[in-house]
Amino acid sequence: MADVMTTEAPAAAHQSEGAGTGISNNKLLMWVFLGSECLLFGGLISTYLIYRSRFHTGPAPGDIFDIPFTSVSSFVLLMSSLTMVLALSALNRGDIRNNRLWLLTTALLGSLFIGGQVYEFTTFVREGLGYTTSPFSSAFFTLTGFHGIHVSVGIVMLMSLFISSLRGSLRQEHSETVEIVGLYWHFVDIVWIFIFTVIYLVPSPTS
């Protein structure tokens, strides 16, 4: 554990003279938070896995999942990670125009994903899978809903960045803020990488 402390970090904005890591407080805070989030999504995913075969009299996951559709929306979210990292890269270069462009693109791709989720949910409901239909349905909507809320919060943060960029207050020296929002965004993407494979692609029980 001692070697954790001797980690040499790049000259960060909030370098203290002390014996600390020299890492930016803000970035460390975000990573600590993401470590915590692993346990949150782990709990939701486990709940889903325990309940995925308990569909009572309602539709089974294997019957109702639309893999091609979800594949497309997963791809959209995956690509939003690329645009996110391009936004950061642009700001690091001082390229405000491209930073704005990619921030907005990322937010739009995220919204597209959320739109897809809304479509998926309404389709499921139409096909008889309501929130209260079975333990499976409750667990499914709760897990993907929590993920969707995380994406939505990310979109709000991205739009806040975009607007403050329009106001001229998001400059090259603020790239760490963009990086931190990016960390959150990529994490949400990573969670979906997991969900997409384990919940959708691994064959689910059918009725």
Binding site: V4, T7, I23, W31, L39, L183
Partner: peptide
Amino acid sequence: FMHLRFDSSLFTKFFVGGLVL
């Protein structure tokens, strides 16, 4: 994308710690 390759290994430890746990 999350720069763990380039950033402080402390971040990796937090993240991997959470994941492994």
